[in-house]
Amino acid sequence: MSTKFARIALAAALGLALAGCGKEEAPTATAPPPAVAAKAAATPDGAILASVQHVKAGNFDALLQSVLPPDEYAKAKADYSKEMNKEPATEEDKAKFAENMTKLTASDAEAKLWAELEPKLKEMDAQMAQQMPMMVAMGKGFIQSSIQQNQELNDAQKQQAVQAVDALGNWVSTAKFTDPALAQKSIKIVCDTARKLNLKTLDEARALSYEQAMGKIGVGFLGLKEVLAVYGFSIDQTLDSVKATTLSSDANSAKVKIDYSLLNTPLSVESDLVKVGDRWFGKEMLESLKKKDEAPGEVAPAAPANG
C-alpha cells in the first residue's frame, strides 16, 4: 500500500470521517445502521455519519469516495500504481515479508506463535508492571506538550486532543496485554487476518490493483479492530457513539458538531464543511489537497513584466 493512500485512508478513519459527502442541511442525528446510511448522507451531519459507517465496515474505497471530491478521487485512484511502485522494494524487504506471511499463515501458526510467546509472558508482565506507569506518563506528557505547541490547532482542538491522549494513556495503563488467554485470542485473530489477506510475497502486494488494495486494507483494519477489542478498546463502540449536529449552514458551507465517546471519555469537535457541486466535503481536507498541489518543487509561473 502506498504511503499516500494509507495516509489518506487512515487519517479519514481515525478522524472519524470528519469530512463527508452529502446535500443540504439537517438537525441532530445519530449514527444510522448501514441500511439507511445512504439516505442519511443527504445532509452535512448525515454525510459524516455515513462515512463513520464506511469506517466501521472497513470499506475504505467508499470512505475515500466520501471524503474526496470526484476529481481528486479519480486522480488518486489513477495514481495508485505509480505511487505504490515509486520506490523499489529491496531484496531484504521481500525476504522479510515472505518470511512473516509464511509464519502467520502456516496450518500450525497459532500453536508455534504461542509456543514462542508463552515463556516470555511472565517476564514481560513483570517488566510492564514496573516500567509501564513511567513510560505512559512520559509518553502522555511529551505528546500533550507537542499538542499545546501546535500552532495549527485552536484551543478547542487542543483540549480535545489532550483528552483523547489521556483516555488512550489510561487504557494502555490498565489493559492486560500479558494475559495468556487474551494473547492466544489475539494470535488467532492475527493469523486469521493474514490468511484472509492471502498475500505470499511483497511483489504480489505491490501488484495489487487499487480496488484490490482497498479490500486488503479493509481486511487488515477489521483484524486490528478485533485485536484492540480483545484488550478492551472497542473502535466500534466509539464509532457507534458518534452523534452529529448541524450548527449552521448556507448554500456553500456548514458547521457540524460531532460528539463521541472514546474509552468512556466524552469528546466533542466541530467540523467545517464546504459544498462542491451538490456534495459536502471537509474544509480542512480540501485545503490540505490544495497545499499538496502547490507543494515545493513546483515552480510558479513568473509574473508578466510591466510595460
Results as ranks from 00 to 15, higher is better:
Q149W: 01
Q130S: 04
M135C: 04
S146D: 11
S145N: 13
M132I: 07
D155M: 10
A129N: 15
A137S: 06
P133A: 07
P133W: 08
M134W: 09
D125C: 07
S146N: 13
G141N: 08
E123G: 02
S145Y: 06
S145V: 02
Q151P: 01
M138L: 10
E123Q: 10
E152I: 04
D155H: 04
G139A: 12
N154K: 04
S146Y: 12
Q151L: 01
S145M: 08
N150C: 00
E152H: 12
G139R: 02
A126H: 07
Q144P: 10
S146G: 13
P133L: 07
A129E: 15
Q127D: 13
M134R: 08
E152P: 00
Q127A: 12
Q148N: 13
E152A: 10
I143K: 05
N154I: 03
I143L: 03
K140F: 03
I143S: 05
Q148G: 07
S146K: 15
P133D: 05
I147R: 02
P133V: 11
M128P: 02
E152K: 13
F142A: 11
E123N: 06
E152M: 12
A129T: 14
K122L: 03
E152W: 11
N150H: 05
Q151N: 05
M138A: 13
S145E: 13
Q148R: 14
Q130M: 01
Q148H: 09
Q149Y: 04
Q130T: 07
L153C: 06
K140L: 14
Q151K: 09
L153S: 07
A137P: 02
M135A: 09
K140Q: 15
G139N: 09
Q130F: 07
I143N: 03
M124H: 11
Q131E: 15
N154R: 06
N150T: 02
M128C: 05
P133Q: 00
S145T: 09
K122H: 02
P133H: 05
K122R: 02
N154G: 01
M132P: 05
A129Q: 14
K140W: 03
N154T: 00
M135K: 11
K140C: 10
Q131G: 03
